[in-house]
Design a protein around this nucleic acid. Structure first.
Lengths: 342, 342
DNA sequence: CGCGAACCTGCTCATGTGAGCAGACACGCA
DNA sequence: TGCGTGTCTGCTCACATGAGCAGGTTCGCG
């Protein structure tokens, strides 16, 4: 017995084949299948709805606009960028970084002063930016980043690279990220120069930062600011990861106020208050931090991969082409960030 | 550094996203990307050519028209039907059978008398045919099929089922497939009744048959006509599989003339001479026989799966969307078999 | 520097296509 | 049977789209 999943389905398939694979006109298809061209059109529409026809854009720089829209809607973001996830996890990181770079380039209005965090992801963003990506964008570091152990100066290098490539100046914050004693932190903060940088950071038009997971692979352990034990203690306190060096819980709160007080740089509330704060984050290990950030208004623009996006939206992996129906009706997420032309 | 695989590629991707995922018009896309709508159209065309936009028809009953065209062209077939290969090998068999059934149903002109072989595949074809698939199609068996051991009567059941479902009569050939002694075979052949069936078979408008691999999984071993040793000997003689019970080599010749002389039913040359001979075959084990058959004109219509199709075309697996460029220009393979209307 | 070839761009125009609409049809209920 | 309701069908019409073409640009080569 032929499994007759509705008589028309087979017709729809035949029509789809002739239309998409053979490039025939709906009229021609009508002639072949002995139906009117309008019926062909309807069959095709139906086939598209039912997911029989799958259109995919295969390109490393492709994006998932449906997910972007959903993210923006669900978390009240100004904008979202979602890149398709490659199999490789390293590759994923650089895709996200590339996407963030693209976003910066096409940002309107151009941010004259960009507040910057540091880390592996942001360094990749800097590398992904083309020379001359903008004209005269200055950069200011948001949090301390002098490494105690290896790879000294990557924080500074990131900031200067971004500024240089746009023909601008970088203002660095050449201090440790976390101080051992509160007094030292306050003293440094009080320093005229450091205070000036902090002041400048508050006037930035946009912030660009990443986030780290609350585990021993964190840069803070690498850099020597925290020990594995410190991390474990933070996790016990509910920490899911760090933003600008500050460890937060799933509820978006500071995990350890004492530690936080010793952390130098822009505060969480200042970040939350910013009009444009771009979070670039990808990978499974960062899912919890990412959720904490987007659900508590710490970022206004999210650049991430599709797995993270789905995680944030509560649909883990699978189940995709369902919520993708009402195209083109509601609000339109910009391809480029907010155009200044109406 | 941004991997600049041609500047326009990124634009093309963005355009494709907006066009296919967001259902925007090319005009709107032009406005967003700040290019003219004609350029958008060209970018899309380019993206389609380069394979950035992949359109796939996901359906069990879908077909691969590109491969069908290529098969028909390369082997001079009247028609070809290629079904997408599922992961499962059992599933694959029934897909091919379904496709063959579909083909029979939509065949024009309707074959008043259908010559039929037997086997697992053809039985599935019979099952896949809807009741009343045609009006008054008679069936005649092409080769003997009384099983010596298990599953007696499937050969007869296949033929009668197909005939009954079309409201026609089945003429059976109730003899063994292979006789032990040549004299017996000649004697049976000389019998008035059997001779009459053979005579009738020669007048069939179309033949429908399958093929078996030359290994011990063959139905002939199952049925007790041949032993595993016989098969091994045949393989040594160059046999790649059987058609209508006759074992052939890769060159399309009879592998063992002595055995063949003892095989009852339609001869290879008669099959080759037929105007419409439909081969339904799928699965990796049958690749060699399938090749022998199509390269030596033993079938005029091929129904198979996409892996087999690719194997036959000499492009093993991968490497697909290359030879798929010049759509719509040259000869068009019919969706349904040869229409009788012009 | 001058010239032609190849390419790209923006256009006109014919064709392809989807939204929307009125009539046909089938179904359930009184 | 009559009537309303919902679905399906074929149509008109406005819009979207691709082919083809002329002018402009870039590039290589003499």
């Amino acid at each position: 017995m032929p499994l007759d999943t509705s008589d028309s389905e087979l017709l729809a398939v035949r029509a789809a084949e002739l239309y998409y694979e053979e490039n025939k006109t709906q009229d021609e298809i009508g002639a072949i299948l002995r139906i009117t061209r309008w019926k062909v059109g309807r069959l095709l529409a139906q086939a598209r709805e039912r997911g029989i026809i799958r259109i995919e854009i295969v390109h490393p720089r492709a994006r998932r606009l449906g997910l972007e829209r959903d993210l923006a809607a669900q978390f009240g973001l100004k904008d979202a960028v979602v890149v398709p996830a490659p199999l490789d996890d390293v590759e994923l990181q650089s895709r996200v970084a590339e996407a963030a770079a693209d976003y910066l380039v096409s940002m309107r209005p151009i941010p004259r002063l960009l507040g910057l965090s540091w880390g592996r992801t942001l360094h990749q963003v800097a590398e992904a930016l083309p020379v001359g990506w903008s004209t005269g964008v200055n950069v200011v570091q948001l949090n301390g980043g002098v490494s105690l152990s290896k790879r000294p100066g990557t924080a500074a290098a990131t900031a200067t690279m971004i500024a240089q490539k746009a023909g601008g100046q970088a203002t660095l914050l050449p201090t440790p990220a976390i101080l051992e004693r509160l007094e030292t932190k306050l003293a440094i903060e009080g320093d005229r120069t450091v205070g000036g940088v902090a002041q400048l950071a508050r006037t930035a038009n946009a912030y660009l930062y990443s986030a780290g997971p609350a585990d021993t692979s964190s840069v803070h352990v690498d850099s020597g600011y925290l020990t594995a034990d410190d991390i474990n203690r933070l996790v016990d306190l509910g920490a899911v990861g760090d933003v600008l060096g500050r460890y937060i819980t799933a509820e978006g709160e500071i995990a350890d106020p004492e530690l936080d007080a010793r952390t130098l740089g822009l505060g969480l509330d200042e970040l939350r208050a910013a009009t444009t704060s771009i979070l670039a984050v990808g990978g499974e290990t960062k899912h919890p931090v990412a959720r904490a950030i987007v659900t508590h208004g710490l970022c206004s623009v999210l650049v991430t991969d599709e797995h993270t996006a789905r995680f944030l939206l509560g649909r883990d992996r699978d189940a995709d082409r369902d919520a993708d129906l009402d195209h083109s009706t509601d609000s339109t997420p910009s391809t480029a960030p907010r155009e200044d032309t109406p």
